[in-house]
């Protein structure tokens, strides 16, 4: 097995974290967007609010996965000491702030009294925290001595990954909530995912060119991660299939359409399947990212 693949396997929990958490955060921000609309009725608002747990769970699964690679989580509180100095501390802080804001928002939606203005303000801050969190993950490995990760393409690719997986997951959540979102909004989510995918593939192509010439005294990138372009091709196919599947899942049902019928089940299966395919593609590229780890020296 190539040395890079062995390294990526040893960091598989981080591969999973960086696959799920950024997309989950973006999905939370996008799925919450209709809650800022004034015309939304109380029942639909409640359904969307409750099912915001879907992107939250996806993000949490990623975070729990990342914690499993720690040797001694008992010392985790010391991470606060590195905020602003260590990009990893900043990332953890970003995750904690986002999950605290989003989680408490979700819990408060169960409260009898949670004024609409306060809901919108709290949600807006949580959505902002989601964006900041994705940024902190994108730059968590921005370290000059790691030559293969200190590339603008590496950070841009992670942000774009979240813009591929996030909208698809948000659309799945809204469909599951039977939210009365406009067709324009649903199409907007699909177009966002599609455009992000196209740009993401272009960024990966540029990254391939940069990585091809990189080597140190121990190995070259092609030794560490042979077949990087094949990973990009698989990513493109899986994510494109995910977008198509989600697009062909059908029109989002409105509240009051009646009990969950076979058509809605089919739609959710297709939409959920689309998400899984996109996540599979992103997972492959995150695996390839870790496989390319190479310092400027040894």
């Amino acid at each position: 097995m190539a040395a890079g693949f062995a390294f990526a396997l040893s960091e598989i929990s981080l591969v999973l974290f960086t696959t799920l958490a950024p997309s989950g955060a973006v999905a939370f921000a996008l799925m919450g967007a209709p809650l800022h609309r004034g015309a939304l009725d109380a029942y639909a608002r409640e359904r969307i609010s409750k099912l915001l747990c879907i992107p939250l769970i996806v993000t949490m699964v990623g975070l729990v996965a990342s914690a499993t690679h720690l040797g001694n989580p008992d010392n985790a509180l010391y991470v606060i000491a590195g905020i602003g100095r260590s990009p990893l501390s900043t990332e953890v802080a970003g995750a904690v702030v986002f999950l605290a804001l989003a989680g408490v928002f979700w819990l408060l939606t169960f409260a009898r009294r949670f004024p609409l203005a306060a809901q919108r303000a709290w949600l807006g801050v949580a959505q902002l925290a989601a964006v900041v969190f994705v940024g902190t993950v994108a730059f968590a490995y921005w370290q000059e001595t790691i030559a293969t990760w200190h590339l603008w393409e590496a950070s841009a690719a992670l942000c774009l990954n979240s813009l591929v997986g996030g909208p698809l997951l948000a659309l799945f959540g809204l469909r599951a909530a039977k939210a009365p979102v406009s067709e324009a909004f649903a199409k907007g989510l699909l177009v966002t995912a599609g455009v992000a995918l196209a740009v993401n593939i272009a960024v990966y192509a540029l990254q391939c060119i940069d990585l091809a010439a990189m080597r140190n005294a121990m190995a070259s990138v092609s030794d560490l991660a042979p077949g990087f372009p094949a990973f990009v091709a698989a990513f493109a196919v899986l994510c494109a299939a995910g977008c198509v599947l989600s697009a062909r899942a059908g029109k989002t049902p409105a509240v009051g359409d009646g009990p969950v019928g076979r058509g809605i089940c089919r739609m959710l299966v297709m939409s959920g399947g689309g998400c899984l395919m996109a996540f599979a593609g992103i997972f492959l590229m995150r695996f390839a990212f870790y496989a390319t780890h190479m310092t400027v020296g040894l």
Binding site: L70, G71, N72, P73, N75, A76, S86, Q143, I146, T295
Partner: peptide, 11 residues
């Protein structure tokens, strides 16, 4: 915490 970032970053 044994996160391994030091090992990744040291050239």
């Amino acid at each position: 915490i044994g996160c391994g970032y030091c090992a990744m970053a040291c050239p």
